[in-house]
């Protein structure tokens, strides 16, 4: 016993180092539990508040550009409105048809903090649990896909953007219809990689890449980007470079997407997995 105590006293520095270092590494690997903890929610609220103040000032300086973007989006949306179409059939299409049930709702949100220069980038938005935001909801901007909600507190949420090396998104090439998986290689916030497209699929530079709609997070057909280059690797699959349509370095307003049928889809998919 005495020897043990003497040993611990003699090597206390190294022993304590090993102990604390293992604690840190354990924390690192249990990231998901951490996201839900109370302390993190409190800190997220504080951080959201202070960053919101800083961001609202920077936003003021960008008002002209923002107005232009919103104007542009309004113009596109207006073109899609039913009442800008002239009916050419006898029975006009009705928006409020009991045949159609609304699947996606959108919640408008502002970004209060954002990073593009790390490998694990995160975005914080000013909408949280009381606004109806939940984890695993999709985030888009007027330019295209942004990311997926990771953690939610009362008034703020953190989002994993496409430019985080841990996020993979199911993507499809618009023209050929083949789908693969899109991820960020951690180098340039403007480009991502699209893999797992079989080599017999046709691929051209300039092809549009859109969401596949398989994940129950994003609706089908949301813009992701454009293919700027590709090569075949392993003989069977393409490895394509995609220029992202969203400019993450200059992002201020986003929409959170709520899928009203998500639970139904997941429940169904889970029952199949259990069999």
């Amino acid at each position: 016993m005495q020897n043990l105590i003497r040993f611990i006293l003699k090597y206390h520095f190294i022993l304590l180092f090993v102990l604390i270092q293992s604690l840190s590494l354990t924390l690192m690997f249990q990231h998901n539990y951490y996201q839900k903890s109370l302390a993190v929610n409190t800190v997220r609220n504080i951080k959201g508040y202070i960053n919101g103040r800083i961001f609202s000032f920077r936003e003021y300086l960008k008002l002209r550009e923002l107005n232009e973007k919103l104007l542009n989006e309004n113009y596109q949306l207006r073109n899609q409105l039913m009442n800008s179409y002239l009916s050419v059939v006898a029975e006009p299409f009705s928006e409020f048809d009991s045949v159609y049930s609304k699947q996606y709702s959108y919640i408008a949100a502002k970004i209060v903090s954002n990073s593009v220069n790390k490998q694990l980038n995160y975005i914080t938005i000013d909408k949280g649990g009381i606004h109806g935001v939940e984890p695993e909801m999709g985030i888009v901007s007027s330019e295209g896909i942004v990311g997926i909600v990771k953690g939610v507190s009362n008034h703020y949420s953190t989002v994993i953007p496409v430019i985080n090396i841990n996020l993979r998104i199911s993507a499809r090439i618009k023209d050929s219809g083949y789908f693969g998986s899109l991820f960020w290689d951690g180098k340039n916030p403007v480009r991502a990689s699209l893999v797992d497209i079989p080599h017999h699929a046709k691929m051209n530079t300039g092809d549009k890449v859109i969401t596949s709609g398989y994940s129950a997070i994003f609706p089908e057909g949301i813009k992701i980007g454009t293919i700027t280059g590709y090569e075949i690797y392993g003989g069977n699959f393409y490895n394509a470079t995609v220029e992202l349509s969203t400019d993450f370095r200059n992002l201020s307003h986003v929409y959170v997407i709520k899928n009203h049928f998500r639970e139904e889809q997941i429940e169904l998919e889970n029952t199949i997995q259990h069999d």
Partner: peptide, 30 residues
């Protein structure tokens, strides 16, 4: 020396809390 390690962990952990990267800064700082 023991205080050095404890202080380093506290410092790293504080930065981690705000960056959403638990354990990362703690580990490097320790």
């Amino acid at each position: 020396k023991w205080f050095l390690l404890v202080a380093a962990f506290t410092l790293g952990f504080s930065v981690d809390l705000f960056s959403g990267t638990p354990g990362l800064h703690s580990s490097a700082t320790v």
